[in-house]
Design a protein around this nucleic acid. Structure first.
Lengths: 216, 216
DNA sequence: GGTTTAGTGAACAAACTGTACAATAAACAT
DNA sequence: ATGTTTATTGTACAGTTTGTTCACTAAACC
């Protein structure tokens, strides 16, 4: 399990020695997760490989989880610079956004991290964090300029469905060595999600079910 | 990390002593995962709580993972009895299927297991197994009676998107104490996925993007 | 060059793991 | 019912990992 850390930074992050140590430990963790899976990696493993004293590890991190979170935070700080809210009602804006760096560019950039963390060697914590992030973004985007009374599915459900779909797509992508460009993936996701599976399958018209069901 | 087990069952599963022990260990594992998270649970914890000798544990299972897998297998054997392949082109068949027990009934039945395993206390192994299962079912359903030349999105992508969407929906559901019935959830999923987000948001018409992109 | 701060290596108790073995208790067969 | 088989038990053991302490060295800073 992975617990949310309470950092109590004592060391000065500007000190070149500290930077060296932190980078070494972080990189080594990822490399070892890739080899053995997160749970199987011991602090001994990390410090041995990184050629850092085990004492030094405890000088910076409470445990393995804290080191992982530090890495995750760095990656998420980067992701936050990418995401832009787009008005889905404006086709021109959507097209422009799909050409801008998307989440998929971010995944591509950190693909080795994502590949490990979203595999059976990873931990649910990372997955859940991605999920929560995407659901929040989706929800915020959808709620924008939407008429609540015309809503056919409760919004939170829709947001989590859409977030799950994106993660599903990302997982297929990274497990097949990124066979499409990030722009292609973003377009696939947009098209399939917005228009639905009937459209994606090339069906002329979606058969409507007879009985109705409201969002409540 | 969770490794795929190679069981070498020595004990006779019909022996009442064995059944008692296995059930005790399995139930205790779930209870402890709920309390401390999978990784934090030790074999000592399990055997102490279950009032079973630690020696007995090793008589049946190589390690914690093997015990988890045994529990997962039991749940999946049950799920396999539920899933039915439905012709999406036949609205009557779809309606009938949505009234039959669906995946959501299965989740409801084992909700405590799902809730734990799909939380930060779980492990990616279970998530990936659910994902792979759903993607396979989705793919098989979609491929049935579909015209490949009219396909607008590559099928595997579509299947993994749909599988991810279902998991996203399930996770929202179990994390909000099942506020809808399984039938409602199945309907939400079907409607939103098949018709797309434009439809779900109640938009009259989906704006089409100008530039086109093929599935390859 | 002197001071501050980070990193080191050794040593420690505590906990968990995985295995072995002899003893006990429950289930089974006839 | 009795003897046999099989599961479970308690104890013991060596090997790891963990988290901490402490005196020492090395690097960075002024």
């Amino acid at each position: 399990m992975v617990t949310v850390p309470q950092r109590r930074r004592t060391a000065n992050p500007d000190d070149p020695r500290v930077r060296r140590t932190l980078k070494l430990l972080g990189d080594t963790l990822i490399a070892l997760i890739e080899e053995k899976g997160y749970d199987a990696v011991t602090i001994q493993d990390i410090t041995d490989r990184a050629q850092v004293s085990r004492t030094t590890f405890y000088l910076h991190f409470r445990d393995k989880d804290e080191l992982l979170f530090e890495n995750m935070r760095a990656i998420y700080d980067d992701l936050a610079t990418i995401s832009v809210k787009v008005d889905f009602n404006d086709p021109a804006a959507v097209e422009a956004a799909l050409c801008e760096p998307t989440d998929f560019e971010h995944v591509q950039k950190y693909v080795s991290f994502y590949r490990v963390m979203l595999s059976d060697k990873g931990s649910m914590t990372f997955y859940l964090r991605v999920m929560e992030y995407l659901a929040t973004v989706m929800s915020a985007t959808m709620i924008d300029g939407m008429d609540e009374r015309r809503l056919r599915i409760p919004l939170p459900l829709l947001a989590h469905m859409a977030a799950g779909a994106e993660i599903g797509l990302i997982m297929w992508w990274i497990n097949h060595d990124l066979p499409y460009t990030p722009a292609q993936m973003a377009r696939f996701l947009y098209d399939a999600q917005m228009n639905g599976i009937w459209w994606a399958l090339g069906m002329a018209e979606a058969p409507r079910l007879t009985f109705e069901q409201g969002p409540g």
